[in-house]
Amino acid sequence: MSGPTTATCRNCGALLPLALRPRYCPQCGQETALHAPSFWEFVHEFVGHYVALEGTLWRTLALLLLKPGRLTREYFAGRRRRYVLPLRLYLSASFLFFVIVKLFGFGDTRIHFAAGLDAQGRPVTVASSPALAEDLKQAGACLARGDACPLSERLGARLQLQLAKTADAPQAVQQRLGSMAPYTVFLMLPVFAAIVQLAYRRRRMNYGAHVVFSLHMHAFWFIALLAMSLLPAVLTWPLLGLIVVYGLWALQHVYQGRWWATALRALAISVSYALLFVFALLAMVALAVLRS
């Protein structure tokens, strides 16, 4: 008596001919041989789905790093299976950047949440500054008056008191900033795309095209910042210059036009984005301090 000749997919219920021994369901694409994954299978699946480490990565990185704007043009031309998709590339670069910075720090950068620095570069605290002590006393009096103190003054007083508390122990605020930074950068990416769309509004390109360009640019920035965090400080300024030249070249290759017009647009985009980014960063710092 012969055994069963068909089986069913556990996901969609489609019939599977056992004689053909299909590895994947022809209807939904799920694997036919299912088992609890081992640890290394789980790691491989995680890396394969969330970090772009397949063979196309090296081709993608070569194009991204050595030919500014070319990767975006390839995407627009429809050649997408050859390279890592823009969002996945961006997420992989940002993931790698924040993991390494979290483990090793970003160069010699330190954030000091103090009221100021004295002549020797030491934080000015309540104990070392009678003027600061008087300011804090007034801030406390404002908060004690409740609604009698204007809202703007109450917010400033609360922020000043929180800054004084963290002046001698900035690590907690730094950790909070580090945890919030990925979300802030992610939220600023569509803002950058909107600025580029505004600068090139006569190109009649839809917003999604500018998002693709922004994803590639941010992926490059993350890689460049990662290099800056790992390489000697003497190379910081040359790398910053390289970032500027790269951005100008990428804009020219993707959007084309005359070089002088591209340079003016690049300047406008850079200034606008820098101002908005600083505003977002200050808001993030204030939020981190007020919630500490």
Rank of each mutant, 00 (worst) to 15 (best):
G3P: 06
T5L: 10
T6M: 09
A7E: 11
R10S: 08
N11C: 07
N11T: 06
A14C: 09
A14G: 06
A14R: 03
L16K: 02
P17S: 08
A19C: 00
P22Q: 01
C25A: 08
Q30K: 06
A33D: 14
A33H: 04
L34H: 08
P37F: 10
F39S: 15
E41K: 13
F42W: 10
F42L: 15
G48I: 11
H49C: 09
H49A: 09
A52K: 02
L53Q: 09
G55C: 05
T56I: 14
W58K: 12
T60C: 07
L61F: 04
L61E: 05
L64R: 02
R70D: 13
L71Q: 03
Y83Q: 05
V84C: 06
L89D: 08
A93G: 12
V99K: 07
K102R: 15
G105I: 03
D108A: 11
T109F: 05
I111V: 03
H112D: 00
A115C: 00
A119S: 14
R122A: 13
R122Y: 08
R122L: 07
V126H: 01
S128L: 11
S128P: 13
S129H: 04
A131Y: 07
A131R: 08
L132A: 05
A133F: 00
K137Y: 08
G140A: 09
A144P: 13
D147M: 09
C149Q: 07
S152K: 06
R154F: 10
R154I: 03
G156S: 11
R158A: 15
R158Y: 13
L163F: 10
L163M: 12
A169D: 14
Q174D: 11
Q174C: 07
Q175L: 09
R176A: 10
G178D: 07
P182Q: 01
Y183V: 13
V185T: 12
M188Q: 05
L189I: 04
P190Q: 03
P190R: 01
A194D: 06
I195Y: 00
L198T: 02
Y200L: 01
R202Y: 04
R204Q: 01
M205Q: 03
M205I: 00
M205T: 01
H210T: 11
V211G: 01
L215N: 09
M217T: 03
H218E: 11
A219K: 00
W221N: 13
F222C: 10
A224W: 01
L226M: 06
S229T: 14
L231F: 15
A233S: 15
L235R: 06
W237V: 15
P238V: 09
L239R: 02
G241E: 02
L242A: 11
I243G: 11
I243S: 10
H253W: 07
H253R: 14
H253M: 11
V254T: 02
W260H: 14
R265L: 00
R265S: 00
A266P: 01
I269H: 01
S270P: 01
L276C: 10
V278K: 05
L282G: 07
A283L: 04
V285T: 09
V289P: 03
S292Y: 08
S292V: 14
